[in-house]
């Protein structure tokens, strides 16, 4: 565990707390993509199956359990409690275009050709693109509440911080995880546009609005 990773994980934790805070205070899931949230549940469930057969540390188990339960809770809030505030008509990204290639990639690139390892690999590839329905929705509506953009910024920061973590591990621990690194770089790159608007507008006190 190095500081980049610790801060990355804390940023990931913060992003989920921001997401829950946004939903509870505005009593609305407006501006959130159900598809992205459902993809995150898929990511966490397929990746953290190792909770049942591979104990790493208390920290590791607690975080994995938190990510699975909180993401399922968000789905419940979107589909049940605040259902009337969810607008599927603007959440139109075709998820099958993400799932298909991820299945294919995980069958080709994995560390062992076993069910659990293929699922792990699938979850890594899927996580790298899971934010796309959300970013697509943002692009369509052209604006977002500040709190929603803070959520996305924390999520993006988590991914960005994993990159120096891998560099650190490469040099200091002589360890490398090519699948996670490749997917992680792709995932971080997807946030570049968002971060540009976030830094130039939201952090300057302006509304998050995309040019028409």
């Amino acid at each position: 565990m190095n500081l980049f990773r610790l801060f990355g994980d804390m940023s990931h934790l913060a992003s989920i707390l921001l997401l829950l805070y946004k939903i509870q205070t505005t009593r609305s899931v407006r501006g959130l993509s159900f598809k992205t949230q459902a993809l995150y549940v898929t990511v966490f469930v397929t990746r953290y199956l190792d909770l049942f057969y591979d104990y790493v540390s208390l920290y590791n188990s607690v975080m994995k359990t938190f990510f699975i339960t909180s993401s399922c809770y968000v789905l419940y809030l979107m589909k049940k409690k605040y259902r009337p505030t969810n607008d599927p008509s603007i959440d139109t990204f075709r998820v099958e275009y993400l799932l298909g290639p991820c299945v294919l990639l995980s069958l080709i690139f994995n560390y062992r050709f076993t069910f659990a390892e293929i699922l792990w690999s699938f979850s890594i590839f899927l996580e790298s693109v899971a934010i796309l329905p959300q970013l697509f929705m943002l692009q369509r509506t052209g604006e977002a509440e500040a709190i929603t953009t803070h959520y996305l910024a924390a999520l993006g920061a988590y991914r960005a911080l994993y990159i120096p973590n891998w560099i650190y591990r490469y040099w200091m621990e002589d360890q490398v995880d090519p699948i996670a690194v490749t997917a992680g770089i792709v995932q971080t790159a997807l946030y570049v546009d968002f971060f540009y608007v976030y830094f130039t507008k939201v952090l300057q006190g302006q509304r998050f609005e995309l040019p028409a």
């Binding site: 990773r5 994980d9 990931h12 190792d50 591979d54 790493v56 540390s57 590791n60 975080m63 994995k64 990510f67 560390y111 792990w120 994993y162 591990r169 490469y170 621990e173 002589d174 360890q175 490398v176 995880d177 699948i179 996670a180």
Partner: peptide, 10 residues
Amino acid sequence: PLAADHHDEL
């Protein structure tokens, strides 16, 4: 380099 323990990272 060695393969990282990929079940350790979140």
